[in-house]
Design a protein around this nucleic acid. Sequence first.
RNA 1: GGUCGGAUGGCCGAGAGGCUAGGCACGGGUCUGCAAAACCCUCUACAGCGGUUCGAAUCCGCUUCCGACCUCCA
Length: 490
Amino acid sequence: MSDLKIYDTYKREIRVFKPIRHPFVGIYICGPTVYGHPHLGHARGPIVFDVLHRYLVYKGYKVRFVRNITDVGHLVNDADEGEDKIAKKARVEQLEPMEIAQFYTDSYHQMLQALNVRPASIEPRASGHIIEQIDMIKTIIDKGFAYESNGSVYFDVMKYSKDHDYGKLSGRILEDLIAGAGNEARELEGQDEKHHPNDFALWKKAGPEHIMRWPSPWSTGFPGWHIECSAMSRKYLGDTFDIHGGGMDLLFPHHESEIAQSHACTGHQPVNYWIHHNMITVNGQKMAKSLNNGISIDEFFSGNHHLLEKAYTPMTLKFFILQAHYRGTLDFSNTALQASEKGLNRLLQAGETLNRINPGNSSDLNADTLKVELEAALDDDLNTPILIAGLFDLVTKINTIAAGQMSIDSENLIKLKALYQTFVYDILGLKNETESSSDKVKGVMDILIELRQVAKQEKNYPLSDTIRMKLSEIGIELKDGKDGTTYTFN
RNA sequence: GGUCGGAUGGCCGAGAGGCUAGGCACGGGUCUGCAAAACCCUCUACAGCGGUUCGAAUCCGCUUCCGACCUCCA
């Protein structure tokens, strides 16, 4: 099997993936902040990294997949100031902060399940790792890269920069950050607590309005946003681990700060491969509340949104996302979604056609060659569009065989079935969403099809068409083929 | 203002010096009582202007337009 090559944001090049300790692979993905229902954009990361996860398992690696839940520390206006998002929501709705975090965590999990995303090995919560975060902050202070100021603790970016590359991951130059054109208007409370404007908070002293608060050596307060990922990834994956993933929008300041904190704390680069996926756009622009183009996952699946012409299934969304490369932006549109819906249907349909094929004596295709081609697509920086193109070539071949214009021997047929199972279902994680029929339903369908067949033979077309139409109305499609009638549930 | 990325056929989207995506839509055909499905055929594009090259969508330069990040963000 050839090597997986993946684009590393830090080194800015495609690199061959080599785990630190073969065959173990540690992956950390930045999960959601649970203060609202997930929207369309939240689906991309889990889907992309799920394919990575599944493909690594396919390649024989033992993967520990960690995806966190941020349930503290994110602030409304600014990384260092303002109200905690979760605490704010709590006051508005008069609920316990943890109740809200739980509610939206469940909502997020429902999305993952609908999208057939494999569960994480560990799903740590920031609120459950306050001790680890405080510990890490202590170490960073001891090593001289952070200082306390009025009960809060800040990371000393200038000091860190003397011997380290702050800004390398996100391609930022410290001087530009300091100049910060466009940032002049920012008037931040507590900015005077910092030695330097670029310093970021590791611990914040809580004002009386903060409901979520924990004791610490410096004050009763709460951890800064970035420290949770550093503390949790270190706890479960070690000082240096294989892969860290997330959205491109997290590059700065979040991931940049993570590197700084972890490096300052442990003396090691925390991550070997940084993988970032791009954003989903609507009419060429990122989804944002101010543009009123945000579509929640629920709205998407129900079709209940002014930008949606109809409801789309989770698998349609997944397939739509997988038809584009993860590093490019992906523009949402109804026509594109509907194209994906039909394409997916064709792909899944061919999988069933495959089960009806009878092997012949000779073979017009070689399953081993196909396998190599499909793997090559994913090895090339997880190029799912190419993989899918290859699968559609397969669809054409399967259909041609089914139509009797090509043949396949039993050995290749068995391999082909396995190939289809592996790539379509196991790696891409697609599944058939139509209801599976019980034996009884199957029996009823057989009776109906037989009755209709009789009607057709008697040229009683009004009756046969009525049967077909009525079934269609309840979502069952009849298709008359050469070898009899088949049906699909819509 | 700074940094980084884009501009591909009707739409979505790969590719990345000579071959060629793929899906959907459109048009024609085979099959069929009709329909659907399936299959076959057709549709040959790379923002503009220069340059490098035997050859450029792909490399270089300039221009125009678009986006992301710089603040919470998947």
